[in-house]
């Protein structure tokens, strides 16, 4: 008798379908809410020398022991950074161009590393081969 009641779908099911979607979006939103939305850090020879939010447009002169090395440009609206006017010979750091969250710019001769730190999603790339 009991099993004749079996339906494929009833209106209440919408609630059951929507709830997991809601949870899905809730969880997907957590990393952005709790993590920093992007911090630009500059290291010279492994030492942190500068830090600022990615969303603030600014330029900063990279110096070591008073010697000019390079200039950091942060575009807050594009949320990207680049190095310009470097004094190194090959200018690989300048050619790197604009980088966003998860990216980095390396100047080998001056031992400068610029990193754009921020939470990236698990589905994204871990490492890049180049």
């Amino acid at each position: 008798m009991k099993r004749n009641d079996l339906q494929f779908f009833s209106r209440l099911d919408l609630f059951f379908i929507v709830t997991p979607i809601f949870i899905a979006f809730f969880i997907a939103a957590i990393p952005q809410a709790s993590g920093k939305n992007g911090v630009v850090t500059v290291y010279i020879s492994g030492e942190l020398v500068y830090e600022q939010p990615l969303t603030r447009t600014a330029t900063w002169v990279v110096k070591s022991d008073g010697e000019y090395l390079s200039t950091l440009v942060v575009d807050g609206s594009k949320e990207k950074v680049k190095l310009v006017d470097s004094n190194c010979p090959l200018k690989i750091c300048e050619r790197t161009g604009w980088v966003g969250i998860g990216g980095s710019i390396v100047c080998v001769p001056n031992k400068i590393v610029v990193k754009v730190e921020g939470k990236t999603k698990a589905s994204e790339i871990d490492i890049v081969t180049w």
Binding site: T96, I127, V128
Partner: peptide, 27 residues
């Protein structure tokens, strides 16, 4: 950009490795 794996991510997931577009930007 030359990568050697010590072991899988958290001991069980493969590392996801992007191959750079030679004519694109760094990312």
């Amino acid at each position: 950009g030359d990568i050697a794996i010590i072991g899988p991510k958290f001991g069980q997931f493969p590392w996801k490795i992007g191959i750079r577009d030679p004519r694109g930007g760094p990312q």
